[in-house]
Every structure is written in structure tokens, then in C-alpha cells.
Design a binder for these strands. Structure first.
Lengths: 136, 136
DNA sequence: CGGGATCCTACTCGATACTG
DNA sequence: CAGTATCGAGTAGGATCCCG
């Protein structure tokens, strides 16, 4: 039995189905994807590769602060998920190139949307934080 | 503002500016925002509150698996960032209601975009993972 | 009912060193 | 060049107890 507050429930903005009310299956998908792209480097890698195919070291240079280990791990995860392709050229010295897969490219649009929101909303967020902290 | 509307951006892979090449200031914003909404519960809370104002316990029931502690922490963070409002009604027993702020509501659209991508791409991702794991 | 205060574990991530 | 291996610190997050 649900404790129903029938008061004035909003007329159900069709956003409702985003993360819940979608019966687990989709909830898991969202959670799972968020665990991947929500980590520290994945989105940066996606964003960088959106500019074109790059080698390991180039990638590392484009993403300040990323360690060798984390870049490797991130790339492996993305490769496993089929979002990034890894091409090894049989040469010396070795050359490995990373690129977005077609699936990976479809992630760019929503990522850009989120990034844009972040950039646009950041001043408001910072202001809110300052106000919140000052109020204590 | 619609998602994916590119306004007056350079046609140069125009995704390029997402996370890098934007001179730190924006990179910090993206990273900072991602650290918040990329955590385990924030997006779930946003998505749930998108359906309308809710009390603490209702929120907890709508989000399976969230602990009291984490729900509290998540809500505090979102409140501090000005994305969620907290209203305490002076009654016994106490009644506290949470809702999205106007700023918080602007996050719904990009979040839905990302969630939709997750749901649509999940079959492909799972397949890719299975193939990747099988190949080793 | 809606939390705050503690304790504890598991995992993330960074630094460093080594390799084909 | 493009990794792998190992170690250690920090922290996210769960469980539990208590309180107004």
C-alpha cells in the first residue's frame, strides 16, 4: 500500500521514465552506463577521440593529468564496451591507434549536451555553493 | 534551449570543444559536474524528482538500494549545488519535501538524453562485452 | 519521520618501476 | 612507444546506532 500524497501531483512530466518506473532492465542499463562514462576519464577520452583517431601518447598529451595506467584502463573498458576501437600496426616502434566506433560516436551528442549544460550552469552552481557554505 | 543545438559553432568536428581545448575553465566545470551527477545516486534522485516533489522516505522507496546515509548525502550535495530544494514543514511528525529547482529542471533534458542513449545502446554494449570476454 | 555520528570495507586512482 | 605489475593512500558507500 502506498502512502499516497494525492495533494497536487504534477501532471506527470514524461521524464518520469528516465531512471525508475522502467522496471529494472532499463535502470540497470542507465546505472551501468553511468558507472562507465561517469568515471574520471572516460568522457574526456570520448571527447578527445571525437576530434579524430589518436595514438596512445597523443591521447595522453591531450588529456592533462591522466596517468599511463588510468588511460590504459579507461581505453580497455571503452574497448570492451565497443565504444572505442584499438588498432595495432605491426611496426617498430609499435603504433597503436584509438578511434571511436560507430556506437561510440552516437555517445557524442548526449555527452556534448551534458557538457554544455555543465558549462552553462556552472556559474549558478558555484554561486549556490558559495551561498550554501556561507549560510552555515 | 534544445539539446544538440549547435548554434554558432565551428564545423570543425564540432565536438572538439567538449572537454578539452576549452582552456581549463570549462574543463573544470565539466569535471566538477560529472563528479556530482556521475556518482551513484544523484542522477537517480534527479530522475525521480522529475516526476514531482517527494518526501525523504518516498524518495527512498522510489530508489531501490539507496541507504539512508547516501540519500541524505546526495540530497545535501544537490541542495548545495542549487539543483534540489529542501522544504521543512514545521509539524509533528516532521515533514520534509524535496523538489527540483528551476536550475535542477534544466538538467533533466540532458539527463534524459543520456539515459535514452544508455537504454538504446545497452544491448550493443552487452554484446560487445560478451564478445570481448570470450575472445580472451 | 528525517536525519546525524561512527565505523568499516572495497574499490578507485596515482606513483613508481619494469618490459617487449 | 605502449603498455604491465605492484603498492599504497584516499574515499565512496554500506551498516548500524541514536536522537529530536
Amino acid at each position: 500500500m502506498e502512502i499516497g500524497d494525492d495533494e497536487d501531483r504534477e501532471p506527470r512530466t514524461d521524464y518520469e521514465g528516465m531512471c525508475h518506473g522502467v522496471r529494472d532492465e532499463d535502470g540497470r542499463a542507465v546505472r551501468d552506463v553511468l558507472d562507465r562514462i561517469g568515471d574520471k576519464w572516460s568522457l574526456l577520452v570520448i571527447g578527445t577521440l571525437a576530434g579524430g583517431r589518436l595514438r596512445f601518447t597523443e591521447l595522453q598529451r591531450h588529456i592533462p593529468g591522466v596517468s599511463q595506467r588510468m588511460l590504459t584502463l579507461t581505453l580497455r573498458h571503452l574497448e570492451r564496451d565497443g565504444l572505442v576501437s584499438r588498432t595495432v600496426h605491426a611496426e617498430v616502434p609499435p603504433r597503436v591507434e584509438y578511434d571511436l566506433t560507430p556506437t561510440g560516436r552516437t555517445l557524442i551528442a548526449p555527452s556534448v549536451a551534458l557538457a554544455s549544460w555543465a558549462i552553462e550552469s556552472y556559474p549558478a552552481i558555484e554561486a549556490s555553493r558559495a551561498a550554501y557554505d556561507a549560510a552555515r
